[in-house]
């Protein structure tokens, strides 16, 4: 359960998050921010069915040192033929783009295999990505 690390500065830049999900299923992405003192800030959820979060501001970098962004995506494959659920799980791709931090970082972060799980019948997929924001 190693978190990704995104390096941020301390010059008041706004850190933004974009999430893109590649799946024919119905995707919903929910974003939460865990500040260093344990405070949880709900950053809302996607509403377009494709799980897209577009340029969502997290906060200014001066307030985000040692915080963690938790991005949870739920995919419902109810409209996809059941015989294709397994392939949808294997082919699921989620990209996480952060902006406003240090230059030349390895963006986007990709969803790893150990960050996704599915229900026993395969109709629901849950993917969780955690990204630590650390000062450079």
């Amino acid at each position: 359960m190693e978190n990704e690390i995104y390096l941020i500065g301390k010059d008041g830049k706004v850190i933004t998050l974009t999430v893109t999900v590649t799946t024919p299923g119905i995707a919903t992405t929910e974003v939460k921010l865990f500040l260093s003192d344990g405070t949880i800030i709900n950053k809302g959820n996607s509403t377009n069915g494709a799980g897209l979060i577009s340029d969502r501001p997290m906060d200014v970098d001066t307030k985000l040192d040692n915080s963690t962004i938790k991005i949870e995506t739920i995919i419902l494959l109810s409209k996809v033929p059941e015989s294709a659920w397994e392939n949808c799980f294997d082919n699921l791709e989620i990209n996480y783009y952060l902006d406003g931090g240090a230059e030349n970082q390895n963006i986007p972060f990709k969803l790893h295999n150990n960050e996704k799980r599915k229900s026993s019948n395969g109709e629901l997929i849950r993917a969780i990505k955690r990204i630590d924001l650390n000062r450079m």
Binding site: T22, T23, P24, N48, G49, A50, A84, E93
Partner: peptide
């Protein structure tokens, strides 16, 4: 057999699948 499901579609989305324009 539908070959589509055996390949990875880099632009797959529920909108494309159900032909819904956003």
């Amino acid at each position: 057999v539908s070959p589509y499901w055996y390949f990875k579609d880099s632009k797959a989305s529920i909108h494309k699948y159900l032909n819904i324009r956003t």
